[in-house]
Computed example of a mutant assay.
Amino acid sequence: MADVGYFLSCEEHGPAELVEQARMAEQAGFDSLWISDHFHPWNDAQGQSPFVWSVIGALSQAVSLPVETAVTCPLVRTHPAVIAQAAATSAVQLGGRFRLGVGTGEALNEHILGTHWPEASVRLEMLEEALQIIRQLLTGERTSHRGKHYTVENARLYTVPDDPVPIDVSAFGPQAAEVAARIGDGLITMTPDVTMVERFRRGGGGANPVYGGLKVCWGPDRREALRTAHRLWANEQLPGELPQILPTPSHFEQASTLVTEERMADAVPCGDDPDDHLRALTAFADAGFDTVYVNQIGKDQQGFFDFYRTKILPALRG
């Protein structure tokens, strides 16, 4: 595996904690950072939801690692023209070390203005139009656009980076993977699915990078770590389109009662056995991923970073 990044969770941690975790990630030897972009956490137990663009500004002053949103929805809650300005400023602050990760979003975050939540095929259509607007604005040229979903009138970004901002597209199904291949500079997906990677590459993605995300819960007591993972992130194991259509954290809490600890144990490496963590990371490499971003569930971040610095990253690179 070429690179291992750290995934900063805005659902679990406040802005000061996220910046400190980024510093620890850099010191531990991680290569880059992902950061989630949410209005709500998935459930009340996670308990946080800072504004991602403010945190990225702080990260630009605290670390030298590349940063990417994983992922931003530029469709409903925030107009793509505003996302373009946020991405441009982030890229300037980070000296070109910024990638914009985008996806079709979840009702959990996007319904808050009381607007209609479109079905998945419509959201993919909206995403394609949104990226046309974002890419045009990032050139610094005056932009007007009158499309099916969005209107932009005489807009121009004056603060833009020297080089284009790479835009990676999140996909969880075949149709989305094909869209990502056509309009994205890379693919983001959360399971080590070789079929998804092959579909992306055959569909036009070619040698563009593929990024994956992995949640773990390091701790000296595996059973306690599993309980923590289940309490905070059972929502990760909800099937199908449920994560895209449930509108509030309380709905996720209700649905997550159907997810057992045993199911979490099969999906999330828990405890302090290096082999469990290495096996999960290697699965992404074997499926053709270029980078995997690891997120530690729970409060024991320092223990996690010490474990990965001494046991996991050297083994992956050695």
Rank of each mutant, 00 (worst) to 15 (best):
G14C: 06
Q132D: 15
E110H: 10
G147W: 10
D31C: 00
D3C: 00
V216Q: 05
L94D: 03
A155L: 15
M196A: 06
V63H: 04
G95E: 09
W233R: 14
P118S: 07
M196C: 02
I245S: 04
Q237T: 10
G101A: 08
T69N: 04
F98L: 10
V194I: 08
F39K: 08
D185I: 00
H116M: 09
S9D: 15
A22S: 08
E110T: 11
L8G: 12
E253K: 03
M190V: 11
V268G: 08
D286R: 13
R123K: 15
S170N: 04
S256P: 08
R263W: 10
Q296E: 14
G14W: 06
G206S: 02
E224N: 04
E68R: 13
G95F: 13
Y211M: 07
V292Y: 03
S54V: 14
R77L: 11
T69G: 04
W218A: 01
Q237S: 14
Q237E: 13
I56L: 04
S36F: 05
V179G: 02
F289P: 01
G212H: 02
T189A: 02
T282S: 14
G114V: 15
T257A: 14
F252G: 02
S32A: 15
V259M: 08
G271V: 12
D37A: 14
G103R: 05
D290F: 00
H13V: 01
E26Y: 02
V122P: 04
L157N: 07
V55P: 07
P249Y: 05
R279A: 15
Y308S: 09
R199E: 02
Q136R: 15
A155M: 15
D37C: 14
N295V: 11
G303F: 09
P247H: 10
E236T: 15
N208L: 05
R135K: 15
